[in-house]
Nucleic acid binder design. Structure first.
Lengths: 208, 208
DNA sequence: ATATAGTTTAACTAATTGGTCAAATATATA
DNA sequence: TATATATTTGACCAATTAGTTAAACTATAT
């Protein structure tokens, strides 16, 4: 009972994830989700009352999963440069396994910005910054990283990691023209991104 | 006649642009577009037979406009570093004026990758590379930029420019937490992005 | 075995939505 | 002015879609 129950609920969740990632909230059809889960539409509504409810459940879990991928970086006992390498390695690998996730999450947040608030309400960014500050005091000074420029730097790191997946359609279109494989490009990117960012940070030594 | 004709067609196009950018193809409603254009739904269908036709018209024009913004960079007679500064300045300013465009275009291409082919079929990237190569031979050598790493470098530049708009919802959510204004962040970004990329490229001198 | 509670289904409903049509109105042309 | 042509409208249609319902089925506990 509980066994079968979980099986069905799990099947629904996986099917819904697929369909929502492919088609988005508006493009997704409950019938399509039911079909992929191998069940009947009424059963779908039995488990998740409405499409909105199902979407919200799927979205919050997926978006949370994606955002949490940023967290372990702050915990590890590594130098700043090692952390940057570690981050790109982990984050890009995660997106290789969930290639549609970034585009889906970004888009649905843009379409309804309130959704992000629920996810971020437990995160205290000021505290996070203080943590980094005491962990990497001298490195931050060396690279001239301050609370004032951290939004630019962090968003740049995120951009370099996430953008290839968010813009996959365009990149694949261009790469086709050039004879480049997207998968190869992504594999290379883990190292390239780290080198690029570390290089840029090192060049900041001079300033200040 | 032709006057009023153009007025109506223009009004429809503008309304459709707004609605499609906000809601996407699937979320957009013909009634909503008609309302915003101040006309009747039947008239909408009189000018653009179907929703698909209207969408395709709007999409091709907007996406083309966005992609063409990358072009002038290759024409100008500037040093490579000047070109990088010029690009971020121009491109980010353009997106300030069309803030929903990047997310819209990226998303609709991911949802239907064939759309990009029509846009790129007249662009010869190999030729473009050869052009850059002869314009900036020594600079490319100095920064160790080759045909092999150009996809990584170009996509990184695009990422740094486009990502803030594609991820605007999330960034605004985080910035709120930090007391940072998105508009200020974007204004700063024009310079920051150029410095960051040039710094990263300069650090590549050593390699090779 | 049988009563009970949870599970699954086929058939149905109500609302939304893209698209049509015939009639009305404005505009240009002869 | 009269006629043809282009534009605009309100009312309508057919298809799709989220959600409901009542009945059938299954497993478990007594």
């Amino acid at each position: 009972m509980t066994e079968k129950d979980k099986q069905t609920e799990e099947k629904i969740f996986e099917a819904a994830t697929e369909v929502f990632e492919e088609k988005g909230m508006d493009g997704a059809r409950m019938q399509d989700i039911a079909d992929r889960a191998g069940i009947n539409k009424a059963l779908l509504h039995y488990y998740y009352r409405t499409k909105d409810h199902l979407f919200e459940t799927v979205f919050q879990l997926l978006a949370g999963k994606m955002l949490r991928k940023f967290a372990p970086v702050f915990e590890k006992d590594l130098t700043l440069e090692e952390k940057i390498r570690f981050f790109f390695q982990q984050h890009i690998t995660f997106m290789q396994e969930n290639p549609r996730l970034p585009s889906f999450v970004l888009n649905e947040i843009n379409r309804n910005p309130d959704r992000i608030k629920k996810l971020l309400k437990n995160v205290d960014f000021k505290k996070l910054w203080m943590k980094i500050e005491e962990q990497h005091k001298d490195e931050l000074e060396k690279y001239n990283i301050t609370i004032d420029n951290i939004p630019q730097i962090m968003s740049t790191i995120a951009a370099i990691s996430v953008f290839p997946f968010a813009a996959r359609g365009i990149l694949e279109g261009i790469f086709e023209n050039l004879g480049v494989e997207f998968d190869t490009y992504i594999e290379e990117r883990k190292g390239f991104a780290a080198d690029f960012v570390i290089g840029a940070l090192q060049s900041r030594k001079a300033s200040k």
